[in-house]
Computed example of a mutant assay.
Amino acid sequence: GDKSFSVGGDIRELESLSVDDRWEQHIKKLSSINTAVENLPVPVIAAINGFALGGGLELALACDIRIAAERASFGVPEVTIGGFPGTGGAVRLPRLIGKGKARELLFTGKRIDAEEAARIGLVEEVVPPAKLMDEAMKLARRIADNSPLGIRAVKQVINQGSEKDTAAAMELSDSLRRPLLSSKDYAEGLTAFKEKRKPRFVGE
């Protein structure tokens, strides 16, 4: 929306969920949603306008690319109320921006603006609010012009390879690359290049 991407949990709702099975189920459900977003076979772009705080930022971290409006702000304030970023923030944030800066944000709960978020690599681009959705859609269309098989394989290597050593990550990369060489999309890409036209990929 105009004011917020997402500000995470409603404090009144959190108060109603005592530290019992209901609370644990609530956290697991939110965490599973973020994991499902992260594991989608297609790239997911977060267009962030306004606040992305707590669980809202954790959702954005599960996306592949983040574009922010100039007035966006970011933070993981859970520790300021005695809580913990339990739906992936403490895991994904250090992997994205490095342990040092992640520690600062996670330990202090402070907010940062869009310019700072771009500087530390939390978002890829900052645009005027009026252009946010247009820029996100422009990027989505550019990605969609490419081979869906190639995009899917690259995303899988990025997501899974970062958790492996270099040799294992390269083995994963090779295992996903080889089948593409016999795909219809690869043949179409080569033909389109030779014919100097836009390829028509079919995902096969």
Rank of each mutant, 00 (worst) to 15 (best):
residue 133 M to T: 10
residue 110 K to D: 11
residue 56 G to W: 08
residue 118 A to I: 04
residue 190 L to Y: 01
residue 100 G to E: 15
residue 114 A to P: 00
residue 135 E to T: 11
residue 189 G to Y: 02
residue 100 G to F: 11
residue 106 L to W: 07
residue 51 F to K: 12
residue 195 E to D: 10
residue 132 L to Y: 02
residue 176 L to E: 07
residue 149 L to R: 11
residue 128 P to V: 14
residue 65 I to A: 03
residue 172 L to Q: 01
residue 8 G to H: 05
residue 189 G to E: 04
residue 62 A to S: 15
residue 178 R to C: 02
residue 113 D to I: 06
residue 5 F to D: 02
residue 158 I to Y: 09
residue 131 K to W: 05
residue 5 F to P: 01
residue 112 I to P: 00
residue 39 N to G: 05
residue 125 E to G: 03
residue 192 A to E: 01
residue 12 R to H: 12
residue 75 G to Y: 09
residue 127 V to K: 01
residue 92 R to N: 04
residue 33 I to F: 10
residue 157 V to P: 00
residue 66 R to W: 01
residue 107 F to R: 11
residue 10 D to F: 12
residue 139 L to E: 05
residue 53 L to N: 05
residue 140 A to M: 10
residue 193 F to G: 00
residue 195 E to F: 05
residue 158 I to S: 05
residue 147 S to K: 04
residue 27 I to Q: 05
residue 84 F to V: 08
residue 177 R to W: 09
residue 156 Q to D: 07
residue 7 V to Q: 11
residue 76 V to M: 15
residue 80 T to Y: 02
residue 95 R to N: 06
residue 115 E to P: 01
residue 140 A to K: 08
residue 50 G to I: 10
residue 195 E to A: 13
residue 119 R to T: 11
residue 133 M to F: 15
residue 128 P to N: 14
residue 81 I to P: 00
residue 199 P to Q: 13
residue 90 A to W: 07
residue 137 M to N: 02
residue 74 F to V: 12
residue 112 I to R: 03
residue 52 A to Y: 03
residue 43 P to F: 07
residue 9 G to M: 10
residue 70 E to K: 13
residue 125 E to H: 08
residue 130 A to S: 11
residue 90 A to H: 08
residue 42 V to K: 13
residue 12 R to C: 10
residue 89 G to W: 09
residue 97 I to L: 02
residue 89 G to M: 12
residue 170 M to L: 15
residue 16 S to L: 14
residue 183 S to D: 01
residue 78 E to I: 04
residue 56 G to I: 12
residue 189 G to Q: 05
residue 198 K to V: 13
residue 74 F to P: 01
residue 198 K to I: 10
residue 154 V to R: 08
residue 90 A to N: 10
residue 156 Q to T: 13
residue 204 E to W: 02
residue 193 F to W: 11
residue 68 A to V: 08
residue 117 A to D: 02
residue 45 I to Q: 03
residue 36 A to W: 10
residue 52 A to N: 06
residue 25 Q to K: 12
residue 88 G to K: 11
residue 4 S to Q: 14
residue 67 I to N: 00
residue 191 T to A: 12
residue 84 F to E: 05
residue 134 D to C: 02
residue 29 K to I: 08
residue 201 F to W: 04
residue 19 V to M: 10
residue 200 R to W: 03
residue 14 L to I: 13
residue 142 R to W: 06
residue 139 L to G: 02
residue 182 S to A: 12
residue 2 D to K: 12
residue 35 T to I: 14
residue 59 L to K: 02
residue 65 I to Q: 01
residue 139 L to N: 01
residue 198 K to W: 04
residue 175 S to Q: 02
residue 50 G to V: 09
residue 37 V to W: 00
residue 54 G to R: 03
residue 77 P to Y: 13
residue 127 V to W: 02
residue 38 E to Q: 15
